[in-house]
Design a protein around this nucleic acid. Structure first.
Length: 564
RNA sequence: CGGGGCGUGGCGCAGUCCGGUAGCGCAUUGCACUGGGGGUGCAAAGGUCACAGGUUCAAAUCCUGUCGCCCCGACCA
């Protein structure tokens, strides 16, 4: 491609509404154009990058045995009634009515459609297993799109769905996808880590995220500094500190005027927060529940939701707390009737706690579980934080920020049972098909790559996903000798199989160099009267400061070396 | 959905408080010069001041409403 004919222009200044690096650079370099909040067009350069990413994904999906399909973006709402997600999907489904007044939705994901596709042709265990995938547009009407391509409403996703007869098969299919994902990110030049994750609204049990570590990421990852344990903060576990359990003393009430917080209570008594039992109130499905956790830990609401069977908890309002008969600042589960009690297992790892007396201005000493209060549910609802011991017993947790690029889930029979995707086994029995689903955000991969790999001058794209391999800058092109050589170089580099952007414009050198840097093209080749005087052409990697002069016949080899 | 900010040539901004000729930088066009990090000069073109209504002799500016975009929070494959 010749720069003189390339559609799209680079900008010296990014539009004012672009805030983060990838949004600014992708806009300035002429990769993307914003059309509305969270909705973007791809210009030729951006489209080339995305096409490269898409092709790598497609190759690896095929290699892993996936079969490419295509499912509609527009779907009847009925299909979503079957899975039960029509009302519950977050964000709410984008809906419209067709001319026959049928309710239609714009698909935010394709589990329902994939299940429908499978159930139409699977009848026997002989039909299993298989994995289908597509690269398709989704729409999620996010409450707040942000960060350019990082969090958009309309986006392209590679989504794959596996179908198996049994758990062993699901595990095999799942691991095949995990392996494919690792290859995809590696080939794209992205340093991505796989972490344990919560499965959220998609459903199912096991799930892993693939995260690109970057300071600007919105995902918090906790990883061990000594082992390969890594998990999303929503999912992360840790070894809780255990205290020796001494004699259980008698409960005694004492006056604590103006003491409303665990911090103040611990200070008043001159003990650490771990000697207190903290009570937190949540509203779940319109009901107030009391959550008790040792004072040195905080509640992880995702873990709480999972313990509650998937209902989303939110902090109860002061009015709700009052209506439930609870005394904020002096509350505890001790002696409470008619309020559901959730207890974190950290409470069992200590004794003689300070806790609220359920009486304004009073607290209790020597509260013990389960002697003094009950739990309707006992489990792990504590939020892991940096510095805590890793759950595998090796090392401490460290915290990192990251951008989620992929997510894999073992769905099991969540969809197949509801939607009737069944097969007959060897014994003639009907069973639910077991499913897995596997997603990669394609546009987000490009944005994340820019977030992770850039400098003051622009993007520094990994060669596999850069729009072009080589930025060929011809200077002094009014000199027929130079321009003739530049044209020949343009031809021979293309013949060697490289994607070349040839800057043939009548523009000052500085302009060409700035554009080359901004676009992040991995290798820059310069031919000019000066380079010829120095014995050939100049070759420079985008990521390096220094360039080298090589003779014309050696250019291809030099470029190949730089591209790796 | 709560809080905050912003809408003025393609991009970045000033002008709005205090109503009266729409302005600056970059980009664009032409010519000349220049030629290794967004170069110089001369000349030129380009704007329903987000939209609608109102006040006024007069509105980018004041009033009312609407829309859009961004940021923080809540939420989030």
């Amino acid at each position: 491609m010749r720069s003189s004919q390339l559609f799209g222009k680079t900008l010296r200044q990014a539009p004012g509404d672009a805030e983060n690096i990838s949004h600014k650079l992708l806009t300035r370099a002429g990769f993307i154009q914003q059309i509305a909040a969270g909705i973007f067009s791809l210009q030729p350069l951006g489209n080339r990058s995305i096409t490269k990413i898409r092709n790598i994904i497609r190759e690896e999906m095929d290699r892993a045995g996936g079969q490419e399909i295509n499912m509609p973006v527009i779907q009847p709402r009925d299909l979503w009634e079957e899975s039960g997600r029509a009302e519950t999907f977050v964000p709410p489904l984008a809906t419209f009515e067709d001319r026959r007044e049928r309710q239609m939705i714009i698909a935010p994901t394709h589990e329902e459609t994939a299940t429908a596709m499978a159930r139409a042709s699977v009848t026997s265990y002989r039909d299993l297993p298989f994995t289908i995938y597509q690269i398709q547009t989704k729409f999620r009407d996010e409450t707040r799109p942000r960060g350019g391509l990082l969090r958009v409403r309309e986006f392209e996703m590679k989504d794959a769905y596996s179908f198996d007869a049994d758990e062993e098969g699901l595990e095999r299919s799942f691991q095949a996808m995990v392996a494919a994902y690792k290859r995809i990110f590696k080939r794209c030049g992205l340093d991505v880590v796989m972490v344990d994750a919560d499965s959220g609204g998609i459903g199912g049990k096991d799930s892993n995220e693939f995260v690109l570590l970057a300071e600007s990421g919105d995902d918090t990852i906790l990883m061990s500094d000594e082992s390969d344990y890594a998990a999303n903060v929503e999912k992360a576990e840790f070894i809780k500190k255990e205290f020796p359990i001494g004699n259980l003393c008698e409960v005694e009430e004492f006056a604590t005027p103006d003491i409303k917080t665990i911090e103040a209570l611990a200070k008043l008594e001159g003990v650490s927060r771990s000697k207190t039992a903290k009570a937190v109130f949540y509203s779940v499905d319109g009901e107030v529940v009391i959550v008790t956790i040792r004072g040195d830990y905080d509640v992880n609401e995702t873990k709480l939701r999972n313990l509650l069977g998937g209902s989303v908890p939110r902090l109860a309002t002061p009015e709700e707390v009052k209506a439930a008969g609870l005394v904020a600042g002096s509350a505890s589960a001790v002696g409470l009737e008619g309020v559901k009690s959730i207890v974190d297992d950290s409470i069992t790892m200590g004794s003689n706690y300070l806790a609220g007396a359920n009486k304004e201005g009073f607290h209790l000493r020597n509260v013990n579980f389960p002697r003094d209060f009950k739990a309707d549910i006992l489990g792990d609802i504590a939020e892991a934080k940096k510095g805590y011991p890793s759950p595998d017993g090796k090392g401490k947790l460290i915290a990192k920020r990251g951008i989620e690029l992929g997510h894999v889930f073992k769905l099991g029979n969540v969809y197949s049972s509801k939607m009737g995707a069944r097969y007959t086994d060897e014994d003639g029995q009907q069973n639910d098909v077991l499913m897995g689903c596997y997603g990669i955000g394609i546009g987000r991969m490009l944005a994340a790559a820019v977030e992770a790999y850039h400098d003051d001058f622009g993007m520094v794209l990994p060669s596999a996903i850069a729009p072009y391999d080589i930025y060929l800058a011809g200077l002094n092109l009014e000199d027929a000798d130079i321009s003739g050589k530049a044209e020949m170089l343009y031809e021979s580099l293309q013949d060697a199989g490289f994607d070349v952007l040839f800057d043939d414009r009548d523009a000052p050198p500085g302009v060409k160099f700035k554009d080359a840097d901004l676009m992040g093209i991995p290798v820059r080749v310069v031919i000019s009267s000066r380079s010829m005087g120095n014995g050939g052409v100049e070759v420079k990697a985008r990521a390096e400061k220094e360039s080298e002069i090589v003779s014309e016949p050696d250019v291809i080899e030099a470029v190949r070396k730089l591209l790796g």
